[in-house]
Design a protein around this nucleic acid. Structure first.
Length: 569
RNA sequence: GCCCAGAUGGCGCAGUGGUAGCGCACCUCAUUGGUAAUGAGGAGGUCACGGGUUCGAAUCUCGUUCUGGGCUCCA
């Protein structure tokens, strides 16, 4: 974990950077420059955007300031003094306006650069031992897209050069694992200009992995008391009026299409469809809880600038489910979902999580009582499961509280996948009821939940987590069979047939290449198991096994190999 | 959507005013090889798209589309 000193160091580094920028480009106006998770930034309002060459100049200037060990000088000033000190800095004046009269206002000066800042800072710039300016980006003043776009310079700083290098290596590793790069190299998926942005094409190998994931998902859902449903991709637009999506979700929906004088809408969510199934007949308390799951493909209009490979697409498939239950069942259902989530993730080698509980926002529907009850149900469910969680106060949806789960991948990055949302709104809007033991109609509570979030995103995360080297059960090709000479090809074909009959996915490497080239090709394809077959093996009735993980394992009979592999699955 | 930067054969890249080149992949032939690249040959691009400037544009310019890094938003 980062300690306060590191963030202080980074904050100080951002001041040093601003000092350098001010010295080099006097006409820029300064905005804000905080430390952030992996470094710091400073926002400037500049006449022209910064270039990579500018960054070099700024870096040089910063090094001078650091070398001079320029002290950070703190001064407390009155609001009136501050207003006059920063009279030429409109962004600082705006910040000052928000500060109440009488509140402590402090300034920090380093190398002649004065900034309005609460601090704290290091005592002098010489404390900065390792920093690097990373890149330039646009950023709205105060993060509001209605405001002016400022030029932001990102940088990072560490306590030592070694730590900085380690961080830079981590970034390189992330780049090496980028699912867009691996997706192309391993021929898993593509996104094509001719078809439109944010639309994913699953190639045979990617589609096979998807099938394996879906099969596993469906089997486990059936084992866990869910039923599977399938619903259309479009529906009459009025349905989305009923659900309320037309009011609060229009900007994310594809435009309607007119068919036979009626407007149809491509679905951005699956829930209304599941509620229509619910409403298709009268429901009894005896059926509760109802758990309906679907691989539901949805289409959402996402702003062009946010699209990102598989992680953020315009068409994607949610591993969606809706649980309709009574108030009494809420707690046990949530608990059940949570343990289900972790069971599923374990299969994909994810074992570390961060859990967030989002509570009631300002604008919301439903009574205080039901919010308290639902939020309480979540808390006890999480606590019963022994899960620690963080609270996102007021971060819930307007229709109910939610749990978000982030998973940690092989190189320590967190990814938002699962979401469990309680909904008091939609059952109301669709007026769904069940007949209780008392013969009266009651309103069920609805839980929306997705484990993977979307298959596309989860696939992207898996690619990056495994760096493209999928475990045996998920590998599109599990075994590469490499004859050494043409002499061995016939024998290899028999091995191929035997293994294929046993359910293994094999590929015969009978191209006219020397063995080394075949091995290299299979390694680049990240195939977990390679069989090398030469005359020696044929005579012994065996195959030589080489694994992606351990290299040369020696010779085995095909039966021994099958037994071994089945154990690994 | 906004700011900045890009777009050259399937992929990775070179080429800043005189009508395109390299490596890998692909195809053919030779080679029959023991754990990450055998050799030779061949084919493949109206340089993202549409205007403009120019005798002449991959190259300069404007617009569009898409991609990348951010902002905002999100599964």
């Amino acid at each position: 974990m980062e300690n306060i000193d590191l963030s202080m160091l980074r904050h100080s580094c951002s001041h040093v950077m601003a000092a350098a920028v001010k010295k080099l480009f006097g006409d820029v106006k300064i905005a804000i420059g905080p430390s952030i998770e992996n470094g710091f930034y400073y926002d400037f309002d500049a006449e022209r955007p910064f270039t990579p060459e500018d960054l070099e100049l700024i870096t040089k200037e910063m090094k001078k300031i650091i070398k001079s060990r320029a002290p950070f000088i703190r001064r407390e000033v009155t609001k009136a003094e501050a207003l006059s000190l920063f009279k030429d800095e409109p962004y600082k004046l705006e910040l000052l306006e928000a500060i109440a009269e009488g509140e402590t206002i402090s300034t920090y000066e380093v190398d002649g650069f004065l900034d309005l800042c609460r601090g704290p800072h290091v005592d002098h710039a010489g404390r900065i031992k390792a920093f690097k300016l990373m890149n330039v980006a646009g950023a709205y003043w105060r993060g509001d897209e209605k405001n002016k776009m400022l030029s932001r310079i990102y940088g990072t700083a560490f306590a030592s050069k070694d730590e900085l290098n380690e961080y830079l290596q981590r970034l390189e590793e992330a780049e090496r694992r980028d699912h867009r790069k691996l997706g192309r190299e391993l021929d898993l998926f593509s996104i094509q200009e001719e078809a439109g942005p944010g639309l994913v094409f699953w190639h045979p190998k990617g589609a096979l992995i998807r099938k394996l994931i879906e099969d596993y998902w469906k089997t486990e859902h059936l084992k866990n008391g869910y039923e599977l449903v399938v619903t259309p991709h479009i529906a009459l637009r009025d349905l989305w009026k009923t659900s309320g999506h037309l009011d609060f979700y229009t900007e994310n929906m594809f435009s309607p299409m007119e068919i036979d004088d009626a407007d149809y809408q491509l679905k951005p969510m699956n829930c209304p469809f599941h509620l229509l199934i619910y409403k298709s007949r009268v429901r009894s308390y005896r059926e509760m809880p109802i758990r309906w799951a679907e691989m539901g493909t949805v289409y959402r209009y996402e702003k062009s600038g946010v699209l990102h490979g598989l992680m953020r697409a315009r068409g994607f498939t949610q591993d969606d489910a809706h649980i309709l239950c009574t108030r009494e069942q809420l707690h046990s259902e949530i608990q059940r979902i949570m343990s289900f989530i972790f069971m599923i993730f374990r299969k994909f080698d994810f074992t570390e999580y961060e859990i967030f509980l989002s509570t009631r926002p300002e604008k919301s529907v439903g009574s205080d009582e039901i919010w308290d009850e639902a939020t309480g149900a979540i808390r006890t469910a999480l606590e019963t499961e022994g899960l620690s969680y963080q609270i996102d106060d007021g971060g819930g949806a307007f229709y109910g509280p939610k749990i978000d789960v982030k998973i940690k991948d092989a190189i320590g990055r967190m990814w938002q996948c699962s979401t469990v949302q309680i909904d008091f709104n939609e059952p109301e809007r669709f007026d769904i009821t069940y007949v209780g033991q008392d013969g009266e109609h009651h309103r069920p509570i609805m839980i929306h939940r997705a484990l993977f979030g979307s298959l596309e995103r989860f696939f992207g995360i898996l690619i990056e987590n495994y760096a493209g080297a999928f475990p045996l059960w998920l590998s599109p090709v599990q075994i590469a069979i490499c004859p050494i000479t043409d002499n061995n090809t016939g024998y290899c074909k028999n091995v191929f047939d035997t293994l294929t009959q046993e359910g293994f996915r094999c590929s015969l490497y009978d191209m006219n290449e020397p063995l080394k080239a075949k091995i290299k090709a299979a390694e680049l394809e990240k195939i977990p198991c390679m069989l090398i077959v030469g005359d020696r093996d044929m005579e012994a009735g065996k195959v030589s096994v080489r694994t992606r993980k351990d290299g040369d394992k020696g010779a085995f009979t095909v039966e021994e190999l099958i037994a071994q592999l089945k154990q690994e699955l």
